[in-house]
């Protein structure tokens, strides 16, 4: 009986321990954020890596998501003559949910995994030890710039995603499904308020923190050569995606009450 309880409880203990370690890692990184030197050059480099280099994949995801959203809602709303609400539905979905969440997932796949692989490789090839040996704190040098870049760039990417997604919905709704453009826009402006957009951006900043924190944490704690780097990368993508989706529910429940 006790053994069965032990067996069942062990994964939960591991999960709580892991969360504790990740939280400690975050506090450590925040502490190093405010200590000189500020390392702005590294922050800008990471902003370019996380933000600029992710734009294409975010654009493609957003445009097709907006298009398919318009298509699906059109077929649904047509049954009760609500085609005019397609624009508002696409815009609300994009700004509140799909923009931030899909951007978070896409950036996880592209940049979060790269963070884990890069830092993980540095760990197993002793480059992180070399930083310590040269009196350079690797949390400040490697982790802090990535966290800042994640938090700052995700909202920007989400703005792009929202805009392009709505554009995709507009093109399908107006040019393919012949929805009146005036009604499309008017309903959208009526129903979407600034709070929807703003809350979506706050969510995206949280997702940026989650994906960069997990990517850096997994990379920093990589063990066991190339296989370890592979595992760290996979774990980063899985854990980040799951964490983004779970936190999305709680953030939504908190912000859109």
């Amino acid at each position: 009986m006790i053994r069965a309880l032990e067996y069942t409880g062990r994964p939960f203990i591991y999960i709580f321990e892991e969360f504790g370690r990740i939280f400690t890692f975050l506090i450590n990184a925040i502490t190093w954020m405010v200590r000189p030197p500020l390392r702005l050059r590294l922050v800008f480099k990471q902003m370019e890596s996380v933000g600029v280099q992710s734009i294409i994949v975010v654009l493609i995801t957003a445009v097709f998501t907006g298009m398919v959203l318009a298509l699906q809602t059109f077929y649904g709303f047509r049954m009760f003559g609500g085609e005019g609400l397609v624009g508002a539905t696409v815009a609300l979905s994009m700004t509140r949910e799909i923009g931030p969440v899909f951007t978070g997932l896409m950036v996880t796949a592209r940049a979060g995994s790269a963070m884990a692989a890069e830092i993980g490789t540095m760990r197993v090839t002793e480059q992180i030890d070399a930083l310590y040996a040269m009196s350079v704190n690797p949390i400040q040098y490697l982790v802090m710039p990535r966290l800042v870049a994640g938090v700052l760039m995700l909202p920007f990417l989400t703005i792009v995603s929202d805009f392009i997604g709505i554009m995709g919905g507009y093109v399908v709704g107006v040019f393919l499904l012949n929805i009146n453009p005036g009604i499309f826009m008017a309903r959208m402006v009526d129903m979407v308020n600034l709070g929807d957009i703003f809350n979506g951006l706050i969510k995206s900043a949280c997702f940026g923190l989650i994906l960069s924190l997990i990517g850096c944490y997994k990379g920093f704690n990589t063990r066991g050569g190339a296989e370890g780097v592979g595992k760290a990368t996979t774990q980063t993508v899985v854990l980040s995606c799951v964490s983004i989706l779970i936190s999305d529910y709680f953030l939504t429940a908190f912000m859109f009450r």
Binding site: T125, E126, Q127, A130, N137
Partner: peptide
């Protein structure tokens, strides 16, 4: 950490696989 950083400045270290920054 601060004291260690000062002490480590006295050292240079060549790692097994050089540990150069890729």
């Amino acid at each position: 950490e601060k004291g260690l950083n000062q002490t480590r400045k006295k050292f240079g270290m060549l790692f097994q696989d050089a540990a150069l920054f890729d």
